[in-house]
Amino acid sequence: MARVDIQADPTNLAGGMPLPDSPTVAVATGRQRLVAGLRSLGVLPTIGLVVVLLLVVVAVFAPLIAPFDATAPASIDTLAGPSGAHWFGTDMYGRDVLSRVIVGAQVSMVVGFAVTIGSLVIGGLLGLVAGFVGGLVDRILGQLTDVLLAVPGILLAIAIVAMLGSGIRNVCIALTIGQIPLMLRVVRSATLSISQRPMVRAARAIGARPSRVLLRHIAPYVWGTAVVQCTFTFAHAILYEAGLSFLGIGVQPPEPTWGNMVSEARAFIGSQPWNAIFPGLAIVVVVLAINLVGDGLRDLADPESRGRGR
């Protein structure tokens, strides 16, 4: 066999030569990387991110921040309008609405994080398995998903809370069950499409175990999609928790949540609207902020963006 000399271009030997040593790229400092990350995220998602982070801080330090006791009735001053002492006014038991909104953030954040983590772990793992294994496993999980998705979310949550009883833990369980199918579907379809890549064939061809192929070659690529779905799960969870508390089957008074505050304020909505407006506004702002973050992350999730030296 003769050596191949098909149009060997002596000026183009880049394919054969070892690259010269890469210029030492200065390791970006934490702050530079943060700025670069936020810049690629965009303006609105960054605002959303700041709002969400602020809320997390507020929730964590709620007892320190809240100017008044959120649960103890103070009958002196009921249903007062916003004032210097009570920025958001007081409710029918004379409790400071601002303090209640601040403490209520705790419930929203706890439910949001618990449901998101729960559905990510369970739905994400099941989705990976369904998409990777396929066959009977996939079909059974698909049918279960369809059944759960056929029931309107709030009805499903009501039914489960009705079975388990109210309280924050059961609300989390009910909402997680409702969110798992959505996460499962998203992760499954991402897994399916990534499994088709030659990279995954290559990993199988070298003799890697299925678990290694899944965790090392597929999961990292599914992760971005799953994180985006997480933001929507978070927003859903907060909305549904508010809905359940509004209906009186979520977190029980006097423990304040945005949902049961709106519910209690319903009777006075004509005369004292701030009682309903401020917790309602809190729900809108946080859900909007989370969705903005989700949209920004979704734009970033384009897997190729990593390859462009971001």
């Binding site: 890549r197 030659p198 990279m199 064939r201 290559a202 990993a203 061809a205 070298i206 003799g207 890697a208 175990r209 090392r216 070659h217 990292p220 690529y221 897997p303 990593r306 390859g307």
Partner: peptide, 22 residues
């Protein structure tokens, strides 16, 4: 099957997609 795969290896067509970019 995985053990025998050590002895049969493969080079794929498209080196852009056959290597894990991460």
């Amino acid at each position: 099957l995985r053990r025998i795969r050590r002895r049969i290896q493969c080079v794929f067509q498209d080196p852009y997609t056959a290597l894990n970019a991460r």
